[in-house]
Design a protein around this nucleic acid. Structure first.
Length: 276
DNA sequence: ATAAGCCCCTGTGGGC
DNA sequence: TGCCCACAGGGGCTTA
């Protein structure tokens, strides 16, 4: 479900619920999916960060009395996958329960594509996408010049965006929306500088607006915050899930195809594929 | 090194 | 009504 705007909204919502609490016990099944969670037990959550679509809960080191390997800085890493989210009550799809000194919080995830793991701070080798994560789209580190340069030699632009390398946090919805806004075909290779600059600007605009709206909640309502609140950005979608509806720029029906195994929505008139 | 394809899971909706 | 297939906000692994 969640791309950067949904993950960031989740981060903001759960931060006040978890910061300052002690993780007393972490309960879950499927140990091969949720790794080393016991290492977080007894530690205090001191802050919640985010990189791309990953949430990073900072865990305070133990007291000096337990020096040695136990004193290292740890992070509880959470990826929401397609259907993951936090809830205040357990449900049929609760996969991980974070017991704290002030009550429990539940990680629900119907499809189990989500991840929960405890790692040493910054040690992401077991998570290659996070390890190789590109710059945050709304940060100073996201350089237009570098983006334009890399795009000039890239393959099909949508899969390239989804790789998280040129920029972090862009998923299927916001890739389609950014490409529609910048009038670039999803399968276009080797972007011209003008195209890449339009795409760079579109990514920043779309992400800014989507974060402000609290993300997108689709028709099935799967993505919601722990309090049941829905996002509001879906009403601003121009391409995603609008197949057959008229393009808001030119009236041509929005097309839907499959690209890199992902449903892909675009305007066949505004976003033409140029041979290169 | 990069790209394409398959896989992991579960639920839901459409077509027949 | 029931069944089967296709598809769903992601990403990791294997193979060319």
């Amino acid at each position: 479900m969640p791309e950067l705007p949904e993950v960031e909204t989740t981060r903001r919502k759960i931060e006040p619920l978890l910061v300052g609490r002690i993780l007393t016990r972490i309960e879950h099944d499927a140990p091969h999916k949720y790794t080393d969670t016991h290492k977080a037990e007894g530690r205090t959550v001191t802050g919640i960060g985010r990189r791309g679509k990953y949430l990073l809960l900072q865990l305070a080191a133990h007291e000096a009395a337990t020096a040695g390997e136990h004193s290292e800085d740890l992070e509880l890493l959470v990826h929401l996958g397609m259907t993951g989210g936090f809830r205040l009550e357990a449900g049929p799809h609760t996969r991980v329960t974070l017991h704290t000194d002030q009550g429990a919080i539940y990680f629900n995830d119907a499809r189990r594509f989500g991840k929960v793991a405890v790692v040493r701070r910054g040690e992401y080798a077991a998570f290659p996408t996070l390890h190789n994560m590109g710059p945050e789209p709304l940060s100073e580190e996201f350089s237009e010049a570098e983006f334009v340069k890399a795009a000039a030699s890239a393959g099909a632009v949508k899969p390239w965006l989804l790789s998280q390398k040129p920029v972090s946090g862009v998923g299927n919805i916001y890739a389609d929306e950014s490409l529609w806004t910048s009038q670039v075909h999803p399968a276009q290779t080797r972007l011209k500088p003008a195209e890449a600059r339009r795409l760079y600007t579109a990514i920043r605009e779309v992400m800014t607006a989507a974060v402000a709206a609290g993300g997108s909640t689709l028709g099935d309502g799967t993505y919601r915050q722990h309090d049941g609140e829905a996002g509001a950005f879906q009403v601003q979608h121009h391409a995603y899930a609008r197949a057959g509806e008229p393009c808001e720029r030119c009236g041509t029906p929005i097309a839907k195809t499959v690209l890199a195994q992902r449903g892909t929505h675009f305007c066949p008139r505004c976003q033409t594929l140029k041979p290169r």
